[in-house]
């Protein structure tokens, strides 16, 4: 009879059969879900548990964040990232000084601390600046490329003279009218909003030469052209340039504007109207009554 007790060693060769538990473990391991759990779930839990356990302590959290900010600061303080001076291109010296005033920078400064977009917005808030581009050039130079606004007209209002650029944006206030004598003068409320139209009218009024004094915006609706000798051309609200060209053509053909008239009313384009001056009107009546002009 074979022994009931299993004699592994005395039989010489080891039994090839797996033990009950080895067999069960192998079968468990062949379960796909269990396998996934052990391969992915357990490592994730261990790592998350370790990290979570470490950071459960507030002191350690503080230590780590302190160390991180120290590290960041040490990198920012490196000379490679230092910005030492500011170079402003395309701005007049006064404007450059103004820009330096609005950008309160104390050099040297780390390029990590510069918020270029914010600085650009600050610079753009200056009236005289049309466009601004900021960048940090290699070598620690903060470069500003500025395009200034170029004054195109003088706008007289509320007893002041303001310089406007061609889009009507404010550039600066003139201390005296003489400061910009070459620029055309516009006046009236709302004139700054239609500056491009005013510039077109100024261009169209070129044949008038020195007789042209300026433009007045009437009722925020239409323009009046002011000439010397208190003459005034009232332009319509729509297509004023054409009306002005027409008036100039009339004047050149019949020498109209050089006569003694107070104004030319073109507000109704189908019916241009002349307004005579008081002296002219009196002379007119004289002629009609007597047939002979006085003098």
């Amino acid at each position: 009879m074979r022994p009931l007790k299993f004699l592994r060693r005395s039989e010489g060769r080891a039994d090839p059969a797996p033990s009950r538990w080895a067999y069960r473990v192998e079968r468990l391991w062949l379960r796909p879900r269990f396998r996934k759990l052990v391969k992915f779930g357990v490592p994730i839990v261990i790592v998350a548990g370790t990290v979570g356990g470490y950071f459960a302590n507030a002191e350690r959290r503080e230590d780590v964040s302190l160390a991180l900010s120290d590290l960041r600061a040490s990198i920012e303080a490196r000379p490679e990232f230092a910005v030492n001076l500011m170079a402003i291109d395309g701005a007049a010296p006064e404007l450059a000084g103004e820009i330096r005033d609005v950008l309160p920078l104390r050099f040297p400064v780390s390029s990590f601390d510069l918020d270029l977009e914010e600085m650009r917005k600050t610079v753009l808030e200056l009236d005289a600046v049309a466009e601004a581009a900021l960048r940090i050039r290699p070598g620690g130079v903060l470069a500003l490329d500025i395009r200034e606004r170029i004054p195109a007209v003088v706008w007289k209002h509320d007893g002041r003279y303001d310089l406007l650029d061609e889009s009507g944006a404010f550039v600066a206030t003139l201390e005296a009218r003489g400061g910009a004598a070459a620029l055309p003068l516009i006046a009236g409320k709302g004139a700054q909003d239609v500056t491009p139209e005013a510039l077109d009218l100024v261009e169209a009024a070129e044949p008038l030469g020195a007789r042209f004094l300026g433009l007045v915006r009437m009722g925020e609706r239409r323009w009046d052209v002011i000439l010397d000798r208190d003459q005034r051309i009232l332009l319509p609200a729509t297509s004023p340039v054409r009306a002005l060209e027409r008036a100039i053509a009339l004047s050149e053909a019949q020498d109209m504007l050089s006569r003694d008239i107070a104004g030319l009313d073109l507000r109704n384009p189908k019916r241009p109207t002349l307004r005579l001056s008081h002296a002219a009107l009196a002379a007119y009546h004289e002629i009609r009554l007597t047939g002979v002009p006085t003098e």
């Binding site: 074979r2 299993f6 067999y23 079968r27």
Partner: peptide, 24 residues
């Protein structure tokens, strides 16, 4: 005839076949 022995032999065969199949 000897159930323990047979059981061990069955386990051997099943485990080897499972291992080859890669399936339980």
């Amino acid at each position: 005839d000897a159930m323990q022995e047979t059981e061990r032999a069955i386990r051997t065969a099943v485990q080897a076949a499972q291992k080859m199949a890669g399936l339980r």
